[in-house]
Design a protein around this nucleic acid. Structure first.
Lengths: 195, 195
DNA sequence: ACAGCCATGTAACTCGTTACATGATTAC
DNA sequence: GTAATCATGTAACGAGTTACATGGCTGT
């Protein structure tokens, strides 16, 4: 009954399945630390509105408690929420990944731009991919101790390992393409058939 | 003057830089054949509305010509369009790729689902990634003959080669993760410390 | 005769973003 | 005292989607 929620809703709901109760603010942080790499980094305002919707559906329960004078609201997943997440996982089609890759988009139309600019872009991107990988290494390390089969962070660890490979592959592809472009530029100045 | 267009606009504009003049319908097909893999597959209706906007900006020129009785409109990039594309390429930040990966999202919360369902999902995805790669092989083949440095499809060929690697890596990661899950399930039934 | 492709749009809607606003507590 | 972080939202907007509508031409 009702798989009519956007995927991001289920994603946020999923962040609450690790045994703790979080504020919207903390959920946003958790999303930035993990979801960001392979789904999205929802805007803070969206986190609040999705939580409001999840509360309406009774998939999460909000608890408002005074904390040092001010009121703080924490959210916990409910049994209905867990059931809904399970139904979504098992009965809705997974769908194929969507990749929005501005580097590849710009490379595609590289012939309208300065070759040096394209090379610069690839170099920058290789660096960014390596930095993203380094950040993920940090995430992966933080899972150690509870990442064995059956433990709480086993699946997140599998995801992180996949991500580590992905970013390494991206950096490698950027560097390989860069090397090809440089070899061409160096091999013959401007034109082909010049001995 | 005006980099205020959405990236998809420039993407469609870029599809018109390969020396031909296309109908909206054909642009949609070209997008489905190439852009789809690393940007988006815009809805047909969006192709029409983006082309209308690009025409307003004089980045493309529409030519309506009767063809077998009915009127057919083709679009060609203008000099202004080429200049705008170049400015966009060289003066706006490229941005980091956004990956919406439903397989990784579901794997992350795998502990709320049936393990068999997760394995099934990974198996399916590995197959889909291989099929996507096969389709890209077809695209890559179609570029042969004009893919050398300096030729029209050199950059698209670089992109396609990158994509071939990407999909192979995805299939490999899916299979590796699947193998890990199966090894765990087979190695010890349910719990850990049982000899 | 009918399905499928070619070709062109309009209308309604939703997801998600940016900008804005507020205020309290903590660290320097 | 002032900057950063914690915490919570509202409002306006834009990109992109689905659903709908139309009609001619092409192959069987």
């Amino acid at each position: 009954m009702s798989q009519e929620l956007p995927v991001t809703s289920y994603a946020l709901l999923g962040l609450l399945t690790f045994g703790d109760e979080l504020t919207a603010y903390e959920i946003k942080q958790r999303a930035d630390a993990t979801l960001r790499f392979y789904w999205v980094s929802p805007a803070t305002s969206q986190v609040y509105s999705e939580l409001a919707r999840l509360t309406e559906h009774a998939f999460v329960a909000a608890t408002t408690r005074p904390d040092d004078g001010r009121d703080v609201t924490t959210y916990a997943i409910t049994d209905e929420g867990r059931a809904a997440l399970r139904v979504w996982m098992e009965e809705t089609p997974t769908g194929f990944p969507v990749l929005k890759h501005p580097v590849l988009l710009r490379l595609l139309v590289g012939h309208v731009s300065d070759p040096a600019r394209i090379e610069e872009m690839l170099e920058e991107y290789a660096g960014e991919a390596r930095r993203a990988r380094d950040e993920l290494v940090g995430v992966r390390e933080s899972l150690r101790g509870a990442d064995s089969p059956g433990e709480a962070f086993h699946h997140p660890a599998l995801v992180a390992d996949w991500g580590l490979d992905y970013f390494a592959d991206e950096a490698r592809n950027a560097e390989r393409t860069l090397a090809r472009l440089r070899a061409e530029a160096g091999g013959s100045e401007g034109h082909e058939d010049r001995p």
